[in-house]
Design a protein around this nucleic acid. Sequence first.
RNA 1: CGGAGUAUAGCGCAGCCUGGUAGCGCACCUGCUUCGGGAGCAGGGGGUCGAGUGUUCGAAUCACUCUACUCCGACCA
Length: 449
Amino acid sequence: MRLSRYFLPVLRDVPKEAEIVSHRLMLRAGMIRQQASGLYSWLPLGYKVLMKVQKIIEEEQNRSGAIELLMPTIQSADLWRESGRYEAYGKEMLRIEDRHEREFLYGPTNEEMVTDIFRAYVKSYKDLPLNLYHIQWKFRDEVRPRFGTMRSREFLMKDAYSFDITKDDAVRAYHRMFVAYLRTYARMGLTAIPMQADTGPIGGDLSHEFIILADTGESAVFCHRDLIEKPIPPKDTDFRGDLSPIVDDWTSLYAATEEMVDKAAYESAVPEDKRVSARGIEVGHIFYFGTKYSAPMKATVTGPDGKDSPVHMGSYGVGLTRVVPAIIEASHDENGIIWPVSVAPFEAVLINLKAGDADTDAACEKVYAELQAAGIDVLYDDRDQPAGSKFATADLVGIPYQIILGPRGLKSGEVEIKHRKSGERETLPLSGGVDRLRSLVEPQRMDDI
RNA sequence: CGGAGUAUAGCGCAGCCUGGUAGCGCACCUGCUUCGGGAGCAGGGGGUCGAGUGUUCGAAUCACUCUACUCCGACCA
């Protein structure tokens, strides 16, 4: 993509409404535009990141055996009356009427709807297990939206719903999501730690929040240091097998948010030199809730014994529009965003230091074509701008590698590669730049881990 | 929903106290010069001063009402 032909409205000044760093940087990097409180347009650069996040989620959900579908944003009030949540949900739910004065709502979540789909078609235990997921916009009329897309009213969420004949089977479904989530966040360059979450009125221990550590996190968290460096299950993990050893391994180390922490238990479970007390951002939540919806909504299946029983369900959410700012919170510096390669809007930016100079233009065009041919997602800054401005833009929008070409280097047949994260610069022969970049980028795509 | 603020050009702000018909920086447009860390010079365009009502000869400025947005708290993917 040529920057001169792209739509990248970067801001030099910091819009005053933005308080936290990710919100500021998303506005400044031209990723989002606020349209009303808690409602955002995703501009091209932001949308590209959002779609990269989406692709990783889809790949890992699919790998775990979940099946993607798409349900509407608008739902019938009647469906929600069946579960009792139409009355229970409160003002957070946006209620709307159509022209026939029928009652609808903009879905804040989809348990009722997916249960309706399930009960219409699935009647036998032989069709289980089943996990259906979709990635769709939700709306929750938050009293106080804030922090940009971290806490918006309209948000894009992946929500998966598992259906099983018994609780034991449901636990296995839960484990599959647990492992899929570990892999999903790791592929996005995040260290996400599963922490035991409040299960509310249902009880039990089958609920985990996935928390990433960031100084600006919204809640205090306490965990064992070894969780931070713990290697994730590999891509050839057998999701049809028993995943409980993996889950047990992860959950055997103490980790809890401030709502759930038991200080005494924490201190007795974790040696002093292994204690991590930090701040965290919740980027996912998995939950087993049994027959909470299937019983009232009569989503039953016939078991091997010929008897009907309500299915055991769980739901598993990832807020995509929250993950994006969460990545920024975890990875930025004073100059801007530092994208992990796997979610970066572009993998590299080619900086032409003297656009308009015939030799420099020609050399850049050649490198640009080679980068594209090498399969690198590259942004070519071909604008007639001072060098400093181009560096500042490249740093701000956080592209992992800058490949820098100007008359000076050209004269000596050299090109420079700057690593956004470390600030390290390497100078190498012009002919070797593309191969070098490729060797840097490809392993970090993490599409094969 | 309680508390506190803000609203003047795309963004950041001054002007308001003490009323006289709107200004600065960045961005934008034109030309020339520049070109390795947000360039220089010259010229130029852009604003129903959030909305309404009132006071006044005259309102961005004073008064009242409303709206939007932000921050703190309670709530939440």
